[in-house]
């Protein structure tokens, strides 16, 4: 099945001081156009590394890494970059501290030589629910939720077909988490985005994604649909354990 994103046998290892750590050991999956694919797992399971490898932020090996059926090399071209954009976990670290929201959003437009900067920036801010008065503020003048909105606007301003989200809500207050999740769901609908969402929170993933991959120790344990996960259709013991463990504190979110 040729999807929007095809990953076959993805491997990532880190080497330092003569030791190597195999963070991702042969992960394969495929995401169809317009689908929301979730990856869950405990800390250190390699889920964020998979996302960074797809984005090209970490060096990886794979037999296939293709977007739209077209293989992408380790060295990305500008056109490759425009295909997929990334939203980082911590909005306090992902915005340049000395640049206003306006400059942050202008940067990708300049890099890709797009026109009508002012109109595009205003539209992008409006799209993520920010007001014109936020446009010339520095990140330290914005709240955590507003910063994450700026980060999402920056990712979407190039109109990429694919959005990669690395725990986009885990650094935010609980009250703001739901707002950002709903924003992502709305933007996905409006822009027909293909999404890969990484989270340690089963509730968040079940809320946003059609299909969910469970990762443990650098490998995919299984891939389930959201219904299967909700109805207790997990086949693997580890998945059932994970669901059981998360039930204790995410019942409220899972009920969304």
């Amino acid at each position: 099945m040729a999807g929007m994103i095809d990953v076959q046998d993805l491997r990532v290892s880190f080497h330092a001081d003569g030791r190597s750590v195999h963070a991702v050991r042969g992960v394969s999956f495929s995401v169809a156009e317009g689908e929301s694919f979730g990856i869950v797992g405990e800390s250190g399971s390699g889920k964020s590394t998979v996302l960074k490898a797809i984005a090209g932020l970490v060096a990886s090996e794979s037999s296939t890494l293709a977007v739209h059926g077209r293989p992408i090399a380790q060295r990305r071209t500008k056109a490759d970059r425009r295909q997929l954009q990334f939203v980082f976990q911590d909005p306090y670290a992902s915005l340049h501290p000395r640049q206003t929201a306006d400059q942050i959003l202008r940067e990708p437009l300049i890099i890709h030589g797009l026109d009508r900067h002012d109109a595009r920036i205003a539209a992008a801010l409006d799209e993520v629910g920010l007001k014109p008065e936020h446009r010339f503020r520095y990140p330290h003048q914005l709240s955590g939720g507003q910063r994450q909105r700026v980060a999402i606007a920056r990712a979407l301003i190039l109109r990429p077909p694919i959005l990669l989200l690395d725990e986009p809500t885990s650094a935010l207050d609980v009250s703001v988490q739901a707002e950002i999740l709903n924003l992502i769901a709305r933007l996905k609908q409006a822009n027909r985005l293909t999404i890969i969402l990484v989270s340690h929170d089963l509730g968040v993933v079940a809320h946003l994604c059609n299909r969910i991959a469970i990762m443990q120790a650098g490998k995919l344990v299984e891939v389930l649909t959201a219904e299967e996960l909700r109805n207790g259709g997990a086949r693997e013991a580890y998945t059932r354990e994970l669901v059981e463990a998360s039930r204790g504190f995410t019942r409220a979110v899972a009920a969304l």
């Binding site: 932020l57 500008k78 992902s94 990708p108 890099i111």
Partner: peptide, 12 residues
Amino acid sequence: SDFIQAVVLQGA
């Protein structure tokens, strides 16, 4: 830092 990674991802 993430904000430099972000501009790398934009193709700067």
